[in-house]
Simulated assay, not measured.
Amino acid sequence: MPESAWKLVFYTMSWSYSTYLLFFTNYTFFHDPPSVFYDWKSGMTVPTDIAVAYLIQGSFYGHSIYATVYMDDWRKDSTVMVVHHVVTLALITFSYAFRFHNIGLLVLFLHDINDIQLEFTKLNVYFKTRGGDYYLVHDILSNMGSVSFSITWFLFRLYWFPLKVLYATCVSSLQSVPNIPFYFFFNSLLLTLLCMNIYWFLFIVAFVAKVLTGQMKDVKDLREYEGEEGAQRAAALLKDQQRLQSEDAGHLNNSAEGKHVQNGITKEKHL
C-alpha cells in the first residue's frame, strides 16, 4: 500500500506538470503534433521547464527498473514491465540527448494519466476492507477507477498515442526535417511501447469480460504470480492480511465487551 500511495503522488504531480506545460504555456504540441519538429536542429537548447520534467521522469524510471527486478514480486507481465521501463528510459535519455524533447513531453503526458488511475484504484481496493469492516465508499471508488482506467487507457494510449505521437514521428518529422537522424531507432522504440500498451490492454479486456460474465465479483489483479516462490509469497501476504483483520476484529469485540488485551491475555475492564 505505501508503494501505491507514493506512486499515486508521483504520477499525479508529474502528469499535472505535463498538463500545465502542454495546455497553459506556449507549447502547442498536443493540438498541433507536427509542431514538435518545427525549427528543429541538432544541438538546440532544451527549455528549462521541459528539462525539469525529463530529469524527474528519468530518475523515476531508473529506479523502477531496479525495483521491478529486485524488489517487486515476479508476475506474469514482469518481463514486459522491465522491457517497458528500459524502453521508456532509453526514450527519455536519447530523446533528450538528440533534442527530440518536444515529442517526449507529449509521450509522457499521454501515459502518466493511466498510472494515476491505476494506483488510485489499487489504494481503494486496499481500503475497502479494514479492521474486519467493509467500506462501501472505497468499493464504489475502486469500481469507478477501474472503469475510468479502462476508458482512458484506450483513449490515451491506443488512440491518441498513435494519432498524435506516431504520426508526428513517422510522417511529420520527415516533412519538417527530411534527413532527421535516428528516425528508425526512435520509431522502433515508440512502436515497441505501443505493442506493450496493446499487450496490457488485453488484461483490461479480460478483466472486463470476467466482470460482465459474473466470473469476478471484486476488483483484483489478473496478473498471476509466476513460480512457486511467487505463489508462496502471494499466499503469505494473503494470510498476513487475514490475520491482521482477525486481530483487529478481536480487539473491537473485546472493547465492545468491556475487555482489553495485555501481554496476550484478555482482561476485564474496570472503571
Results as ranks from 00 to 15, higher is better:
residue 137 V to G: 08
residue 112 D to P: 02
residue 97 A to D: 11
residue 177 V to N: 12
residue 160 W to R: 00
residue 235 A to T: 03
residue 33 P to D: 11
residue 123 L to S: 02
residue 194 L to V: 07
residue 27 Y to G: 04
residue 137 V to N: 12
residue 233 R to W: 09
residue 238 L to D: 12
residue 146 S to R: 08
residue 107 V to D: 00
residue 27 Y to P: 05
residue 100 F to C: 01
residue 129 T to L: 11
residue 189 L to G: 02
residue 241 Q to H: 13
residue 41 K to E: 15
residue 33 P to T: 07
residue 43 G to D: 09
residue 218 D to Y: 09
residue 15 W to K: 00
residue 133 D to K: 10
residue 118 L to V: 09
residue 82 V to E: 09
residue 51 A to M: 08
residue 27 Y to Q: 06
residue 204 I to L: 08
residue 28 T to V: 11
residue 216 M to S: 13
residue 216 M to A: 15
residue 193 L to S: 10
residue 5 A to M: 14
residue 187 N to P: 00
residue 188 S to H: 01
residue 41 K to Q: 15
residue 243 R to P: 02
residue 265 I to T: 05
residue 21 L to G: 00
residue 123 L to W: 03
residue 132 G to Y: 04
residue 266 T to V: 12
residue 140 I to E: 09
residue 170 C to I: 14
residue 264 G to D: 12
residue 257 E to P: 01
residue 270 H to D: 10
residue 270 H to L: 08
residue 25 T to M: 03
residue 217 K to W: 13
residue 173 S to Y: 04
residue 179 N to M: 12
residue 64 S to M: 15
residue 202 L to F: 15
residue 132 G to C: 10
residue 235 A to W: 05
residue 168 A to C: 11
residue 181 P to S: 07
residue 172 S to K: 02
residue 252 L to T: 13
residue 260 H to D: 14
residue 169 T to I: 05
residue 120 F to D: 04
residue 57 Q to T: 09
residue 72 D to S: 10
residue 112 D to C: 03
residue 45 T to E: 15
residue 4 S to N: 10
residue 129 T to N: 12
residue 205 V to K: 07
residue 219 V to F: 10
residue 214 G to A: 06
residue 47 P to D: 05
residue 240 D to Q: 05
residue 100 F to Y: 10
residue 33 P to L: 01
residue 184 F to D: 15
residue 99 R to E: 15
residue 265 I to W: 02
residue 100 F to G: 01
residue 145 G to V: 08
residue 223 R to Q: 13
residue 213 T to V: 07
